[in-house]
Design a protein around this nucleic acid. Structure first.
Lengths: 210, 210, 210, 210
DNA sequence: TATGAATGAGATTTCATTCAT
DNA sequence: TATGAATGAAATCTCATTCAT
């Protein structure tokens, strides 16, 4: 009798892969790349050690897959948020809200990517920086556009974009490591205001020159 | 009755320790904690493997010593800069300039601490976060003071402080990893402006509300 | 869904463990704890280095397992021999015969425990002394009983018990190291006579007081 | 000016050697051959590490020298005791008393030789067995002589001699490791009685055959 | 003669990956 | 497809011994 790849079999395989990925997310999030062994992941996923190698080439590939998952998720969510926004300021604001929301919803993944990935193999670490770079580029484009339109004052858009991204990075790290601020999206309002002011948008609440 | 601890001997010992530390700085900066072996460091320092253990208890202690060196260096430089500053705004500005200057002068050390330390042993990784936390606390105090004085508008000083520190972190990381901005202190001016605006200081160059 | 823990697999695993233990017995017996490396044992057992760590926590645990094996074996054999004996003198005699027999049958193990264990980690070395202590206590109890019954003259039962155990220890060591006496159980008869006389049993062959 | 080996210099050198030997006795007695480093000994002796190598070829030679010291001391004391004894029984008795006395007076040395030497390098371990062998040979000669004279019944003199020596070994080990019996020479009386009875001497206190 | 910094062979142990079942 | 026992490369660290001072 021949082995047939039925839909049921496919679902089972997909479920197994998801179990492995989930176990890896949790272990890597807690113990980092070097602090997590394949055996740990296999045990938590409830599969054999060898099984993991049927689904993923090796340990690094597994880690990279997770980082990539986070990468795609963040970019995707931001892209969707920007679609519905019109105007530079709205796009920036929508991006910020989307980024915080998706991270808050996927804490383990966020931890893997933001906290643990710099420790992994250089190739993997690079992915985090690539994400940050892409986010910065998005911001930079918006800023340049706004400067051209006269909505923002002239400035070094590249540095501004890095600064912009950096504010989020730091607040998220603090949230991941210390639980402060407790509610990421609530803190987002302050953060958004900080960056809009930082970019040079005219915002209320600024002390006026006498 | 020979082999006295002469000044010449002491100098040689100190030079050896420095050679080891410098080799470690370079190797760790490039390859991270797990990507660097004691053998690598010994070879680069031009000493035997065992020699390293005469100067430092173990690999972790060596890494920690470097991270600590960066830690002290940054805090010390900032503390000295703040001494000569009067008023919250000046203190913040002096801190920012000092931080960027000391990092620019010690690129390898900066790389070890900011890029590689999150990968090291948890105890060591913590030190980076401790530094960032302390810097954030400094900023927070300044901000609270300025709010009280009416120099800054009411805001969540904690989030603002994290954002403030984050802008620097991100720009420095970009400088370390991509060489952009090429001149850290030059970029500092833009960065300082961004943060002063972000905090709510009245700065020129903001688009006025019509 | 393969790789079941079949009976055949279990047998193979058990055989492997035995191969490792046997190799360790031989190596430790000849070269002692510090003179034997894990690599030596692996090579003799025909397994990889790592395999040993699948079966035993570390080198010390492997050594301790062997010493414990000897410990249990000797005590067990003596206990069984004593069950069938009635009366102090018979119990002592049965114990002596049993001890010599079990050691003669397990020469390598005897060597590991009696000759090499004092060299191992203190915790392991202690086990030999613990065995000797327990044997001495057994003898001491028998002697005290016999004194009470008037079968033996009053004496320091503790010293007598140590002496009693010591005679065996020395003869066994000589057998292990020099092969003399060649037949341990044959020598046992003389040894038994020595100790029975030494304790004060009335035995033929003693020169009578004129 | 030429260096002259004066008496004073010689004394100083001899004192240094003694300081090293004494430190080694104490360290080896407590921590065994492998548990003691040359650095430990140097520190305790108050000399430099290299100095030890001026007086002794290497670590093994140092250990061997100590074992040999004990070896000579025990044999010498026994030889002197036997000189003043006439007759086999007196010679045996004098030997036993002398052996216990010299061990009690040199506890650290006894520990190095009897407890720690089996752990050392095989070559060194051999020396303990050599001593025991020589002591057994002395006893064996006496026993053979006494059998010939009709003072002792016919028996396997070799086994008897091993047993004889073994009683002392065990009691001394117990004294060294547990402090029981507290007074070695006091326990000697019981031990001597045990062995004289064991050999077949007619001694009082034996239960008479009815 | 005296010293202790320097050395590196060698030991133990871990763990990603393979492969017979 | 699924498993986990087996492997050995590679890393860290120790310490007896040497040798410049």
């Amino acid at each position: 009798m021949v082995y047939r790849r039925t839909k049921k079999v496919d679902q089972k395989l997909e479920a197994r892969l998801q179990a492995i990925m989930q176990a890896a997310r949790e272990e890597f999030a807690r113990n980092g790349f070097y602090g997590t062994s394949i055996k740990d992941i296999a045990r938590r996923a409830g599969v054999g050690i060898g099984t993991i190698y049927l689904y993923l080439r090796n340990k690094e590939a597994l880690f990279a897959a997770l980082v990539n998952e986070a990468y795609e998720m963040v970019l995707d969510r931001i892209a969707r948020a920007r679609k519905n926004a019109t105007g530079g300021r709205q796009k920036l604001q929508a991006s910020m809200e989307a980024a915080l929301a998706v991270l808050q919803e996927n804490r383990d993944l966020a931890r893997v990517m933001l906290v643990q990935s710099p420790a992994g193999h250089p190739a993997v670490a690079e992915q985090l920086y690539d994400l940050l770079r892409r986010l910065a580029r998005l911001v930079e484009e918006d800023v340049l556009e706004e400067i051209e339109r006269g909505e923002l004052p002239p400035q070094d858009a590249h540095v501004a974009a890095l600064a912009f991204v950096g504010t989020f990075y730091q607040v998220v790290i603090s949230w991941l490591k210390e639980g402060i601020p407790a509610d990421l999206t609530a803190a987002g309002k302050e953060l958004i205001a900080y960056n809009l002011r930082g970019l040079g948008y005219p915002v209320e609440g600024v002390i006026e020159n006498a």
